[in-house]
């Protein structure tokens, strides 16, 4: 048997995976290959997913956007995608370099499960559903059910992430992140704020400030109640309070990229500014 397989259908990929516990799935490679190059991962056999047609691209299914796990960041920065999912498009454009965005995938961002994964706060804020498949069948998980800690997921070795479903935007959305360089930088803190003008809800996801993805639920509830949904305005102090509550949901750490105190502060400022933009 070949040590590197490049299936073209999902069924084929799942069958191969079920038959071989030492087969490592490889999507865009932007995380996988870093580990290999630095000796942190020594693959035995590899399942390259690049040719699996079902995993590619995105489509609109009524009020839902179905994003294939193999959809690249550059595809998500596309203007048509940005209309349906503005915050995700904004986040995708901040990831790595153009070279990374050309090949890196949303499925890979989820499977790597780094706290600094830039799509994760957006997917949390949107209440995304992640579809996971194996030869045994499929299951659907929320992002915080899938990712349980730093680089930890509940995926079984025979499972693949196949798609992500998010609601088509029904209101303003904003994504911001902190990096000490204007481009190609890992987020030291990130935030997504999503307003649903029909459901009258606010979603707020945080990045790089918790071990596993979280929503700032107190901030969400407060804002949903404070916003006048007919005019999309809010009273004085609303955005300030929203920022404070969002920062309260952060449990950041000190590391070589930033300090806990700064990260918490930055979440508060970005949450306030993001909501201000949504309400302006």
């Amino acid at each position: 048997m070949s040590n590197v397989v490049v299936p073209t259908t999902l069924d084929e990929a799942l069958a191969l995976l079920a038959a071989d516990p030492q087969l490592s799935p490889l999507a865009g490679g932007t995380d996988f290959m870093v580990e290999v190059n630095h000796g942190a991962r020594r693959p035995v056999r590899v399942l390259a997913l690049r040719a699996v047609a079902e995993l590619r691209g995105w489509r609109r299914d009524g009020d839902v956007l179905v994003i294939g796990a193999g959809c690249t960041y550059v595809s998500m920065a596309d203007p048509a995608f940005a209309v349906a999912a503005p915050a995700l498009a904004q986040a995708a454009r901040t990831i790595g370099s153009p070279q990374i965005r050309n090949v890196g995938t949303i499925g890979g961002n989820l499977a790597t499960a780094s706290p600094a994964g830039d799509t994760l706060p957006v997917l949390m804020a949107l209440g995304a559903r992640v579809e996971v498949a194996s030869t045994e069948g499929t299951r659907t998980l929320a992002v915080d059910e899938l990712i349980t800690g730093v680089k930890r997921t509940v995926l079984h070795p025979a499972e693949l992430i196949t798609s992500v479903r998010i609601p088509v935007a029904r209101g303003p959305q904003e994504f911001c992140k902190i990096g000490t360089r204007n481009a190609m930088v890992i987020s030291a803190a990130g935030i997504a704020v999503v307003l649903d003008r029909e459901a009258h809800t606010v979603g707020c996801g945080l990045g790089s400030v918790t071990a596993a993805p979280v929503r700032a639920t107190d901030a969400e509830t407060f804002a949903a109640e404070a916003i006048d949904w007919s005019t999309l305005r809010a009273g004085a102090g609303t955005t300030e309070r929203f920022g404070t509550l969002a920062a309260d949901a952060a449990t950041p750490i000190d590391d070589h990229r930033s300090t806990a105190a700064y990260r918490r502060h930055a979440i508060g400022v970005m949450a306030r500014r993001a909501l201000e933009r949504c309400l302006s």
Binding site: L26, G29, F32, M33, V34, S97, Q99, I100, N102, V103
Partner: peptide
């Protein structure tokens, strides 16, 4: 356009 280092 890709980084050859990230291509298996």
């Amino acid at each position: 356009l890709s980084c050859a280092c990230l291509v298996l």
